[in-house]
Amino acid sequence: MNKKLSPGRRAYTAGMKALMYASTAAIGALVLLLIGYVLYRGIPNITWKFLTMAPSILNDTIGIWPDILNSIYVVIATIIIVLPLGVCAAVYLSEYASNKRLVSIIEYAAETLSGIPSIIYGLVGMLFFCEFLKMQTTLMAGALTLVIMNLPTVMRTTQESLKTVPQSYREGAFGLGAGKWRVIRTVVLPGCVDGVITGCILSVGRILGESAALLFTAGIAHVVNGFFMGLKSSGATLTVALYIYAKERGEFGVAFAIAAILMLLTLIINLSAEAVARSFKNKRRI
């Protein structure tokens, strides 16, 4: 068994190894370069005024405060609607539905739905919410479009998490005479909070990063509004603002500044998603 490898074999192994190292290095370099470049171009343009002011044509200044607010409004409105819908749908599919065929069809549809390009959601959202329901181009119409877009994500992560709640918990509770809903409320749902939160945070990331669907449905205004007024009016979120400043006004410094902010936000969101998932795992293990 102590035979040496043949030279050809050794060369092949070494070659494959080199190829793998090179691919890894290329990907790593690409990511670092991209992030580094965006931060390098963007960060010098971020000032306190830039973050906290509305743009003014009279003073010829640019501020992204309204866009930040719009992003927050859209995130809040979308999550408030998508969370109960997605969780309830998941609970129904995993705990109540007895028709396995129907369940698998719905799951398959949800999976497909989450793979559809967002611009199609934008188109449908525009025709359905803005035109058919006469909501016009408003943040609310945008939020509702994003609800449809994120429903599969929230539903699927909740479902996966429901599957990890041990069957023995359910048996134990049923064995004490608890009814179905009580078992779900007291034993099953608390056991899948981490999944719900993870799905939620993933959705927030997607909402913040979404532009195509919102260009169609939520509009491009940069006006500072309160929450409810904001939802009823047209408004650009950060990503949409990035598009407008870069493509229509040629303000690349502003675009890069927004890009840098979005990137930092995404980083924070991903880190917090991980932290939440980890802390829940630890808690359950005690």
Binding site: S168, Y169, E171, F174, G175, L176, G177, G191, R284
Partner: peptide, 21 residues
């Protein structure tokens, strides 16, 4: 009433299954 039946006839399972509380 299945709930009442299961109250009067309790069950202990093969693997200990305390709730995570």
């Amino acid at each position: 009433d299945v709930s009442e039946l299961r109250r009067q006839i309790g069950m202990v399972f093969q693997k200990p299954n305390p709730f995570p509380m």
